[in-house]
Design a protein around this nucleic acid. Structure first.
Lengths: 213, 213
DNA sequence: TTAACATTGTGAAATAAATCACAACTAATT
DNA sequence: AATTAGTTGTGATTTATTTCACAATGTTAA
């Protein structure tokens, strides 16, 4: 069966962000090659990606910014929005809190958790911090489906299991370990060490060994 | 010509990290299926990846931990090590500084830059902060090839161009924009917004739509 | 009207990556 | 020695993703 490529999902989110910027600049239409340039890809790939959501452009004016944004929202968002929890209020956790705070209307961090009593009950970047013990009840009670893990490597696996047990269905994992969870939980790893080593590898090789992306 | 898949590079770095942990636990040998479990993959993929660096195991004992770590180092590292610069000392920049500080011997942040005079000349997480004006001279002078960008979206493109002009060959980009640089510069995007939206998308769908990774 | 133009949508081809599947191998056991 | 058990290395295959290439289309201008 023809399902949507995983990579397309990420790019659709990127397209929407770019389009929102263009809309703010009062742009009403654009062509696949313009979006491709902004997103760092090819026009053909943009068209393929947009095929996935069934939004049709027009050979004369390309795509309508407003309509495409709406279609993307229809495809990517759930009608009721998705609250998110974050676990681990260290340096990275706080930076991520500040990064996401107030930015996305349909995807916002509603609670943060940490096992350190010293961090609990404070409000950081507009987000209330709770002790780990309250995680299951909060997640289950609010029907939260998305979690962000920013705890040290050694604590990530048990934290992930707690999130999964409480009903979370997708995890953004910043801890530098691979999580072992049931296959119906989606995990996206943000492994900064791995990313930096990859960059270092290609930075040190000849230009012809640098993949184009 | 059969060059090494890009994804393999990242995984080799992951394997090394896992192996270092195993070595610390005095494990001397392991099989592909063990490494696969730890890394979250299949044994066949592990073997394929290790083919790339030409390290041979043995059907009876699998791979020798010590020797494999050495081979990976030989493949991934440059003999002289690679100093790294970071640009943008906001919340995220500081978190990344603390994350990488002291961790990697051959890949360490030697200088941080920011355009805000208030942040300059301080030492944060053991790393000295300099004004942006000194970036070209420092990067060129020390022969730095790797940069990390943690500036706000609007400043990322000019910062990337400055890094490239100063001789940087690979960039780890945390700013939520796509950089436009000559093709011989390797860019790895760590787009947290995109990643979170992807997680949210799959968290909201049926289990059978969740890709296995 | 009609012709020219640049773009869309998409089948087909190409490329990249993962997986299958099995001969060859090593050590342990008989 | 010969047999067994379990793993490696890899050619072949499959799956995923990207790119090619072109008929169909909407608009502009003659």
């Amino acid at each position: 069966m023809n399902s949507i490529p995983e990579k397309t999902i990420g790019r659709l989110s990127l397209y929407r962000r770019l389009l929102n910027r263009l809309r703010a600049e009062d742009k009403t239409h654009l062509y696949s090659y313009e979006l491709a340039t902004l997103a760092g890809g090819t026009p053909a790939r943009v068209r393929r990606d947009l095929m996935a959501i069934g939004y049709n452009g027009n050979p004369a004016h390309g795509y309508e910014v407003e309509g495409l944004i709406e279609s993307l929202g229809h495809f990517l968002d759930t009608p009721q929005g998705q609250p998110v929890v974050l676990v681990g209020i260290g340096n990275l956790g706080r930076a991520i809190l500040s990064f996401f705070t107030g930015r996305r209307p349909r995807l916002y961090i509603v609670a943060a958790f940490d096992s350190d009593p010293a961090k609990v009950n404070r409000v950081i970047h507009g987000c209330r911090c709770y002790p780990m013990q309250e995680l299951p009840e909060t997640v289950r009670g609010k029907g939260i489906t998305v979690g962000i893990i920013c705890v040290p490597a050694g604590e990530a696996q048990p934290v992930a299991e707690q999130l999964a047990a409480a009903g979370v269905r997708g995890i953004l994992n910043f801890a530098p370990v691979r999580l072992h969870l049931p296959g119906n939980i989606y995990v996206e790893d943000m492994d900064m060490t791995m990313a930096l080593e990859k960059v270092a590898y290609f930075a040190a090789r000849k230009p012809n060994n640098v993949p184009g992306k």
